[in-house]
Amino acid sequence: MANGGAAPTPTPQFPTHNAPRVWLLTSGDSPVGVSIARQVLDHGDYVVSGIIQAEFENESLRSQEFKNFLSEVVRMEGWKDRLKIVPLDIRLVGQCQAAIAEAVHTFKKIDILFCCTSEAVIGTVEELSANQRTLTMVRDQFEKNFFGPMNIIRAVIPHMRSLMNGHIIVLTGISGHLGTPGLSMYCASGWAIEGFCDSVAYEIAPFNIKLTIVQASVEIGILTNKITSAPTMKAYTREYGHTAPVFRGILDGLLNRLPGIRAEYPPPPEKDIQSPSSESERQSGPYLLSRNDIASFYPPLSHAHTEKLIAETVHALTAIGGHENPPARHIVGVEGVASVKEKLKIVSEELEEFVDTSASADILKQHVIAGRASSIMDVDTKDFDGDVFDMSTTFRR
């Protein structure tokens, strides 16, 4: 697991600026959101934390961690006056617009929008297309990871454009570069929002609005957010000969090593598990993701474990947020950088291997038409109004 060693927690470093900045966090109660808010408030900046009211009011571990943070805010001098909590479910356009308006009304501006809302839907394509319930999970995945961030980004652009200043940061993962078996819909939603952001970055650049994609390790995206798993199919288990390392099994093994996991989530009856097959393996953990029903939960990480896990990502975010010349994309951690470099190396090698295939497709090659040599792009075409349009001026290199 990333950051699992004994390396010291990096000290946050912020870009220099002349006045305190205002941050809007889309998931203020997420582990990354809480940690960023703590660092930002300690630095002297302002924070608007968006939360889903229903999740704040329940008694989950995630809710309790956020309430502990609020207690800390009350104790720290000056923090309370620089923190605003707003209801925000980014899947709802109206709540996005209301959160922007509330932030501007309270602190007069928004300098940095930090999109850190995410959810992981786990299952193979076939498992997720098994019935209407699992197909709904696919739609929910895109509502949370793609349409939600798109909603809040669209809502904040007019305000930042009016200021001719702003920085949008979108937290994704290296799954935006690397496909992962068993995480097809999670990867697809990540690739979708990154493609959206890459395009929007060009549109907003003339207004001095920056956009940065921060790709954290897969553990950040999965272990610090809600996990929803589709029922398993026997064809995709090891006992039935499936050899690909489906992410479900990897994550189950990881969850089973968490302290106290068996007490909070007891193992189900053996008949309710598709894998593993042996009783000794079954007793090693609850195997939350290998049941014959939909499982949805937040991984029960301890506070200390979570802080160590996200420290590297939070350090990167504080160094990038509000920077005068931030990167368009930043990959957190040497392992992630190495993985992406390896993927790009493979793509480059394949391009070289098949370069002749691409070079042979030349649409400007001379053809013999009606007994004379002519380029197929030298044909004058009349539109419906009778005006002449010369295609050669458009397509000729």
Rank of each mutant, 00 (worst) to 15 (best):
D45N: 11
D45L: 01
V48G: 00
G50E: 13
I51Q: 00
Q53W: 03
A54E: 13
E55W: 13
S60L: 07
S60H: 10
L61T: 15
L61W: 14
R62M: 14
R62P: 06
S63H: 05
S63I: 02
Q64C: 05
N68K: 15
F69D: 14
L70T: 11
E72G: 10
V73L: 02
E77G: 09
G78F: 00
K80V: 00
R82S: 00
V86N: 05
L88D: 04
I90F: 09
R91S: 12
R91K: 15
G94N: 15
C96V: 12
A98V: 01
A99C: 10
I100R: 06
A101W: 03
A101K: 07
A101E: 14
E102Y: 02
E102F: 01
V104T: 14
V104G: 03
T106M: 10
K109V: 00
K109D: 02
I110A: 04
L113W: 03
L113G: 01
F114R: 05
F114A: 00
C115K: 06
C116M: 05
T117E: 08
S118W: 12
E119Y: 06
A120G: 08
G123D: 04
E127G: 04
E127P: 03
S129F: 14
A130Q: 14
A130K: 15
Q132P: 07
R133M: 09
R133S: 15
T134D: 11
T134Q: 09
L135C: 14
T136Q: 12
V138A: 07
Q141S: 14
F142T: 04
F142D: 08
